[in-house]
Simulated scan of single mutants.
Amino acid sequence: MKPIKRIGIIGNGAVGMLMASLFEPDYTVTLYGRVDEASTVTIERTGVTDGTSIVRLCPVATLVETEQDVFFVTTKAHQVEAATERLSGDVPVFICSNGIAHLDHARTKGFHLGVVEHGVSRDGKRIHHTGLGRIRIGSFEPVEGIRFTASPLDVVWEADIEQVVTEKLFANAIINPITALCRVENGAVAMPPCRDIATAIYKELTTLFDRHVPYTYIETIIAKTAHNRSSMLRDIEAGRQTEVDAILTPLLKRADERGITLTVIPVLQKLILGASVSC
């Protein structure tokens, strides 16, 4: 594996801007987004890390694969296919979107996976880094791990990235819909009545996956992000499309394939879709 010197980040939302700003001191970083023309942007970062970084922002339509050594895709799951249409997989690509709707596309294209555990929100070109975590990356196939310079991003290579993705899906499927519908911070999921809904979702999730995710993992995520407002809640408040079709809808398909009857998750999926329409 040749040394990583140039990093392309597709998606200029909160996560993409956080990664760009923290990679920038050690790498040549290009941020790609839905913009009309290339420019230089100054990213202000506050919170658990603070600082200012200047990076290049280019239209994703002008992306040239060979100009980077690695790509991170940080778009919403429903944007992944369009965002990666200029990528062949010859240069390593890590899809860091929530849910599991993108897994088949990633596997088909030879892309890899990433899970972002940091908490971050965005206000224009200013981002608020609300919680430290890791960026956990890995591949479907046994390949040589990619290493990055140490930074607050804490990028780590995972031998079993599918287990990591499954764990993140459990957390998202429990925390996101509850907080979005109840309009509460993540910490409320640890207390009744939200906890009762959370454990009901968890029980249904365990019937859909052969991999084991202990409920203590969910409790740890809730505690670490107690004062965060979930991405699904922020999307509904802002009138944006949620990631319900990446997080909850694939669970319904999986249940059909396994001949499993769900009761809680289908109701949550319909409520989220209804809340999104009413925004």
Score class of each variant (00 low, 15 high):
Ala159Pro: 00
Ile201Ser: 07
Ala188Met: 06
Cys194Val: 06
Thr199Asn: 09
Thr179Val: 04
Pro214Arg: 13
Leu205Ser: 12
Glu158Ser: 03
Pro177Gln: 12
Ala190Thr: 04
Thr216Met: 11
Trp157Thr: 13
Asp154Pro: 03
Val189Ala: 00
Ser151Arg: 04
Ser151Asp: 05
Pro192Gln: 01
Arg211Met: 05
His227Glu: 09
Glu162Asp: 15
Thr216Arg: 07
Val156Ala: 10
Val165Asp: 00
Ile175His: 08
Asn176Pro: 06
Thr149Phe: 08
Asp210Arg: 15
Val213Arg: 06
Ala180Gly: 01
Asn172Ser: 05
Ala188Cys: 10
Lys168Gln: 03
Trp157Gln: 07
Asp154Arg: 03
Cys182Ala: 14
Leu153Met: 10
Thr207Val: 07
Ile174Pro: 00
Ala200Tyr: 09
Val165Tyr: 03
Ile197Leu: 06
Met191Leu: 11
Tyr217Ile: 10
Arg147Phe: 00
Thr220Asn: 12
Val184Lys: 13
Gln163Leu: 09
Thr207Ala: 11
Pro193Glu: 01
Ile222Lys: 01
Arg211Pro: 06
Val156Leu: 12
Thr199Pro: 01
Phe170Val: 11
Cys182Thr: 15
Asn172Ala: 06
Thr207Ser: 08
Met191Val: 15
Tyr217Glu: 07
Glu204Ala: 13
Ala173Gly: 02
Pro193Leu: 08
Val189Leu: 03
Pro177Asp: 11
Ile178Leu: 02
Trp157Ser: 09
Ala159Asp: 13
Tyr217Lys: 10
Phe209Glu: 00
Phe170Leu: 11
Ala173Asn: 09
Glu162Val: 14
Asp196Pro: 03
Asp210Leu: 09
Asp154Met: 03
His212Trp: 02
Gly187Met: 02
Ala200Pro: 01
Glu204Lys: 13
Ile221Ala: 02
Pro152Phe: 05
Asp160Ala: 14
Arg211Gly: 09
Val189Pro: 02
Thr166Met: 00
Lys168Met: 04
Lys168Ala: 04
Glu219Leu: 07
Pro193Ile: 13
Glu162Cys: 12
Ile221Leu: 00
Val189Met: 01
Leu153His: 10
Glu162Arg: 15
Ile161Gly: 05
Thr225Glu: 06
Glu167Asp: 09
Thr179Arg: 00
Phe148Asn: 12
Lys168Arg: 04
Arg211Ile: 14
Ala190Gly: 07
Val155Tyr: 06
Tyr202Trp: 02
Lys224Phe: 00
Tyr202Ser: 03
Cys182Trp: 11
Val164Arg: 09
Tyr215Asn: 11
Lys224Glu: 12
Ile201Pro: 00
